[in-house]
Nucleic acid binder design. Structure first.
Lengths: 251, 251
DNA sequence: GAGTGGTCTAGACCACAAC
DNA sequence: TTGTGGTCTAGACCACTCC
């Protein structure tokens, strides 16, 4: 054993094949047995080399079939101009990007947990509406979000229940406008992390693929809506385009 | 072997200890030998269980010491209002967040690669300035960026070389203002991915921690600056706060 | 020296996919 | 049936940390 382990050298070879383009996205990597023979190593070492590559997000493995170079689809999601009135959340981006979106939703009314209460500036136990959305992009679940709104704000109004499964559903601002509540601020925090085992299963996320987690709150002086949005990191690109105000004269 | 593998059950136990808070960030996990005895499994299985936990970003391992529950520092970085004149890139956020920043830079002039050329709308081979920044936050490298600018725009001007290592260096807009070029647009694409082995080494990123990759371009009708910014995902939170314009009357 | 994680061997057998 | 990845055993030895 030298400074770099055996599996590291093998992994570097594989990595080089991928980076250089000798192996294109979708191509099959050498099988574990092939690696055993070619390098004269045990099964465990061959597996470890591939595991290392997989962990870097460069490959995925399928039992009975083989390991394959990762493919990365990119859907664009606007951050800057996303929250305006009349903006249909995912439809507009889909139109310009040429992909299809479907959505499913589950609606319920629950008591606010400590976490939800702190996000919405309520007391724990107060009632909130909860909607779980799953967004399918080109047939795959690439986004899951959970949304909460204080029930006392919207109870008995037309927006108490969401327009389920409708890709044309209006944005949050317009929904609240319709009951006389005018959102004046949107706050977002964007994190990245590895998916939980549950998320990996639910969204069929392979090993080595992180997710975006966006925590968003709409406020009309006080919070009126908050959501946690989880996006597959190998599918989505967040785009932030801004026009810079001119200072004095021309540009 | 049943539906869930042995290492999965062990990993679930460990995970539960972490999630529940029985093991706090920084606490030591049971050693591999302890797990072998406690569950009556081989060394490899105990290792696999911990590797699984590590891959989820929940733990880190140190040779000779043990495995420990991950700690997650959070520094906030504004997206929305980041690019204005007079905004000192990291100083202001550092002031409000209570952390310290240092920066090192390497300056050079190189020929544009195909990639750089396409980003800056140049022909491959044209000269560009390249600056590599490394940002240290509370003493750790948490950000690395590479910046390119077309040399023909800035050659012979006071901004040809950057003000190295100065945390107070002005923002891009102000720099270009000073030579009569007025930036009118900023475009950003934000991705998340696993770090490369080189990045893991350079920024001491543990297994199971993804990075943000921000590709940014400043334009004054044509591109005048572009950069790739890599941020440790377990350290940084991107913040996007927006004031919503009122529609008709009050809110 | 004792305890920790890291690497590696040489097997065995299981689960799944394709032919 | 053959080939693929996935799980597991029972060892051995190396590299590092701490006492």
């Amino acid at each position: 054993m030298s400074v770099t382990p055996l599996y590291g050298k093998i992994a570097d070879d594989l990595r080089q094949m991928i980076i250089s383009g000798d192996l294109a996205p979708g191509d099959r990597l050498p099988s574990e047995r092939e690696i055993c023979e070619r390098y004269g190593v045990s099964h465990a070492v061959a597996r470890q080399a591939i595991a290392y590559i997989r962990q870097q997000g460069l490959a995925v493995s399928h039992q009975g079939k083989g390991s394959f170079v990762s493919e990365r689809r990119e859907y664009f999601r606007n951050i800057g101009s996303r929250y305006g009135r009349g903006f249909k959340p995912n439809l507009r981006e889909s139109e310009e990007g040429g992909w299809t979106t479907h959505v499913t939703s589950e609606f319920s009314q629950i008591q606010a947990t400590d976490y939800i209460a702190s996000r919405l500036d309520l007391s724990p136990g107060e009632m909130v509406t909860q909607v779980i959305y799953r967004w399918l992009t080109d047939g795959e679940v690439t986004e899951k979000s959970i949304q909460w709104e204080p029930l006392n704000l919207i109870k008995g109004t037309p927006i108490e229940t969401p327009s389920s499964g409708d890709i044309n559903q209006p944005d949050v601002l317009t929904r609240f406008d319709s009951i006389g509540i005018h959102v004046d601020e949107v706050k977002e925090e964007i994190r990245t992390r590895m998916p939980t085992p549950e998320e990996m299963q639910e969204m069929r996320i392979p090993v080595g693929v992180p997710v975006f987690e966006i925590q968003r709150t709409h406020l009309s002086f006080v919070p009126v809506e908050t959501a946690i949005i989880v996006l597959r990191g190998d599918k989505w690109v967040l785009r932030n385009n801004q026009v810079v105000p001119v200072e004095n004269e021309s540009a």
